[in-house]
Simulated assay, not measured.
Amino acid sequence: MKRINVSLFLALIGFSIQQVNAQAWEQVGKKGDWATTVEVVALNGHLYSIEKDGSLFETDEDGTYEQIGKKGSFDNAEILVAMDGAIWTVEDGSLYSTNPASATWRQVGQTGEWKNTEAMVSLNGKLYSIETNGTLYETAKDGSWKQIGGKGEFTDATMLESMGGFLWTVENGTLYKTSIRSMSWEQVGKKGEWENTVAMVADQSTLWSVEKNGTLFRTDVNGDSEQVGKKGLLSDVTLIVAMNGMLYVVENGTLYRTKG
């Protein structure tokens, strides 16, 4: 199973923002502010990002930013998730929770328990993660965890998001949603519709996705998709994140956003 990493997928194929004004893209902050950013998540109306040197920054909707905590504090962070006012990270196989308001952190659970984690999202106050063997786990905020479903049920999942009370995955080019409450899943849309998708991010009731050819799509909870902008519009984007109905992207080190 391949690691689910939006930044890596996009960096491998590249995307660019062209005809910015025509597509209602808006620059946020100063040009080049995000040149060394490697990870980003949205939390409580702010963007939290990690730089190449491991430093954590908080950015508001105007693009104003400030460093949170000490320089390099997150240099070992492999996975970054926002949940219930905290930043959750997997570092050297262990799970940590950071309060961005106080810049304090705590280890959650036992050391090394997360060493096989490939992807992680938050849903209804809990963390859901997929291991290298395709097994899904649910973790509470105190670090207690349990296996969800059968071993290896998500072996074919290459993307993982949470939206509307469901886990959303792309498996063998097809979109699925899984109900944790009933442990039932269903196919969304047509089989194979997502075979060219290389990145996906969820916000409110929308899935934003990017194809290999650089085309942007948005999909609702029923699986109905529409193209946003012209085919191949994106080619130099290295990061995407959604917040409050807006899609944010980093292109050539500069942050932009659009409602589509």
Results as ranks from 00 to 15, higher is better:
residue 145 W to M: 15
residue 87 I to C: 03
residue 133 N to M: 02
residue 89 T to P: 01
residue 115 K to W: 03
residue 73 S to T: 08
residue 80 L to M: 11
residue 66 E to N: 06
residue 97 S to A: 15
residue 191 K to F: 06
residue 111 T to Y: 13
residue 147 Q to D: 10
residue 100 P to Y: 05
residue 83 M to F: 09
residue 54 G to T: 13
residue 170 V to C: 07
residue 154 F to D: 03
residue 102 S to K: 14
residue 104 T to R: 13
residue 157 A to I: 02
residue 138 E to Y: 02
residue 135 T to F: 04
residue 180 I to N: 10
residue 130 I to Y: 06
residue 91 E to L: 04
residue 76 N to W: 08
residue 107 Q to P: 10
residue 126 K to I: 06
residue 179 S to L: 11
residue 124 N to H: 03
residue 105 W to E: 13
residue 163 M to A: 08
residue 56 L to M: 03
residue 92 D to R: 08
residue 60 D to V: 00
residue 134 G to Q: 02
residue 91 E to Y: 14
residue 102 S to F: 14
residue 109 G to D: 15
residue 127 L to H: 05
residue 116 N to E: 13
residue 137 Y to I: 01
residue 131 E to K: 03
residue 114 W to S: 02
residue 180 I to E: 06
residue 171 E to W: 04
residue 57 F to P: 01
residue 185 W to Q: 15
residue 182 S to G: 13
residue 80 L to N: 08
residue 162 S to E: 14
residue 54 G to M: 07
residue 142 D to W: 06
residue 140 A to E: 15
residue 193 E to Q: 15
residue 84 D to S: 09
residue 67 Q to W: 13
residue 66 E to K: 07
residue 112 G to Q: 07
residue 121 V to W: 00
residue 54 G to R: 03
residue 159 M to K: 12
residue 144 S to E: 06
residue 71 K to Q: 15
residue 102 S to A: 14
residue 67 Q to F: 11
residue 59 T to F: 11
residue 59 T to D: 06
residue 163 M to I: 11
residue 169 T to V: 11
residue 56 L to S: 01
residue 136 L to E: 01
residue 116 N to P: 03
residue 123 L to A: 06
